[in-house]
Design a protein around this nucleic acid. Structure first.
Lengths: 145, 145
DNA sequence: ATGCTTGTGGGTAAAAGTGGGGTGAAATGG
DNA sequence: CCATTTCACCCCACTTTTACCCACAAGCAT
């Protein structure tokens, strides 16, 4: 269960530390790929398998299915954490999510997977989220206990 | 079943004592997140699971689903009580709910979960509740209990 | 009164975060 | 096919933060 929002640095080599409390669930292979909204997504192997299966089930005749396939699979990387719990992000992925040493990175726990954000982009997204909820309070209904 | 209102202090390290009578129901993981009206909410693990399951059911391709997911999970923290029944609140959550060592905190039992309030905000909210009830009793009819 | 439980504060040892250097393997070019 | 270079991986070292432990103080009940 990944929860919370953490600020970390990206070093000159393109390495990013994963929060210590998440590492236990990321011992094996980890898949990093492009996410929607210009962030990166990080999946434990099992969760990735599930997601891949769902995408593979989409008919190849659906243009949206083809796009989603390319978005997820084309730039995906299977990596392992190093001894200090860091992952090496390819230059391509770093560029996609605008991750630089000076800007740093925000790691967000989303229950079953993680997202990696450029901090200023995350702030903007956050403001956007709040605005959307205020505009459309009915969305909160989903949360009724 | 959480009931009652209790006053506690927040120490310099950001720790907050949970009332002793509540601890029995909070032995495992506890999830703390921001609530509406600038308070924090505290959920036992089982109650949180219910919430999380509902949000996870939303597809990632729906922009509103993504926003809701990020709102709920990103600002939540999974914590354990320490040996003395205290939780450590992140700086971010403390700032959101205006919790400082000098102000202290009010813990409110709300049956299935708890709320944590800045004392003066709680008083204002309390007065607001009563005023609303007295001014326009008809408002409450819609709840038809 | 006197134990016991609860609330509060602080100190310390361990772990986490960050950066840099060396080594071997793969890639590139002649 | 060989020489050179680049890059990823592993190791080490330093700094900061976290979490655990203990000690004291203040009720409450016996």
């Amino acid at each position: 269960m990944f929860l919370g929002r953490y600020a970390y640095t990206v070093d000159e080599k393109g390495r990013l530390t994963i929060p210590a409390r998440f590492r236990e669930a990321l011992t094996g292979d980890v898949v990093i790929t492009r996410g929607l909204d210009r962030c990166l997504t990080v999946y434990p192997a099992e969760v990735w398998q599930e997601l891949a299966a769902k995408v593979n089930a989409l008919p190849i005749t659906d243009p949206r299915g083809r796009s989603l396939r390319r978005l997820l699979f084309a730039e995906a990387e299977s990596v392992k954490l190093d001894r200090h719990g860091r992952v090496l992000l390819s230059e391509w992925l770093r560029k996609y999510a605008e991750l630089t040493p000076s800007a740093g990175a925000i790691i967000v726990g989303l229950d079953r997977f993680l997202e990696i954000w450029n901090p200023t982009r995350w702030e903007a997204e956050n403001a956007h989220q709040i605005a959307m909820m205020e505009e459309d309070p009915a969305l909160w209904e989903t949360l009724h206990l």
